[in-house]
Design a protein around this nucleic acid. Structure first.
Lengths: 130, 130
DNA sequence: GTATTAACGAGAATGGCTTATCATTCTCGT
DNA sequence: ACGAGAATGATAAGCCATTCTCGTTAATAC
């Protein structure tokens, strides 16, 4: 009687390309951006695979969702230290921003409990400024 | 020959109710929230009318759009002084937050030009905390 | 009051992003 | 090399916020 071994995750070129694209970017990427990057390595890659793996990588804690105002969700490696984001109004890319003003919770009105916060800077990135 | 007089805007109960709801709320409202509030005054009011008037009030500068991460657009009176927002994770309402840490632009990396910024606090509002 | 026509209400249609379906391909333990 | 079934790719379907259509209502000028 053959043992039934449950394979939870297989190593595929697609998944490797997706993870590689995400790590190389070093900034939050939209599903479309992930697709475009990963297609350099795996030409036929489809958008469904991107979404499937985003969901999988999220649930295994490898990936983290970044929600930006008025835009689609973006994703970056989980486990990065506390940071914020810069949204370029020209190229629509989002970049990580180090540091935090601190003392942000004190802005909340009395009785409001602050669990976390997000700061988003808008403007033009270095590339679009030059 | 009757003169052709162009009426640009009529005073309707619906529009009055919408503006009233927005001013009373004193916080950014979603189209659905505006609808719910205004229906207290005008029961039959439809969602299309809400969107129509949002668009109109926006273009005449009376209303201002507030985009929140991972949510639908909200709207509040234009002309309010610089402030930020608190998003209650329990009731999903958004509140205004006075004050600003300042010195926020200095967070941006060299070469990045900051035009504006938004700070969003997450947690539980006073009502949901008690 | 009457005519004009902006504004309304209900529901259909649109447009995006995301998820589901399913036949096919590919990984991996044996 | 083989076989089970996980993963993929193409596309259909689902979701939803927003916009459009159109017959009806009602605000304004006279």
């Amino acid at each position: 009687m053959p043992e039934q071994i449950h394979v939870m995750e297989r190593r595929t070129r697609q998944r490797a390309a997706l993870k590689e694209a995400i790590e190389q970017a070093a900034r939050p990427l939209t599903p479309q951006e992930i697709l475009a990057e990963a297609q350099d390595a795996v030409p036929g890659l489809g958008i469904a695979t991107v979404y499937r793996n985003i969901k999988a990588l999220m649930s295994e804690g490898w990936l983290h969702k970044v929600e930006m105002p008025g835009g689609v969700d973006r994703y970056e490696r989980a486990g990065l230290h506390h940071h914020h984001h810069f949204h370029c109004q020209e190229c629509d890319r989002v970049f990580d921003v180090e540091g935090c003003p601190g003392n942000v919770e004190s802005l909340a009105p009395p009785g409001f409990q602050v669990a976390s916060h997000e700061i988003v800077l808008y403007g033009r990135c270095a590339t679009c400024s030059s």
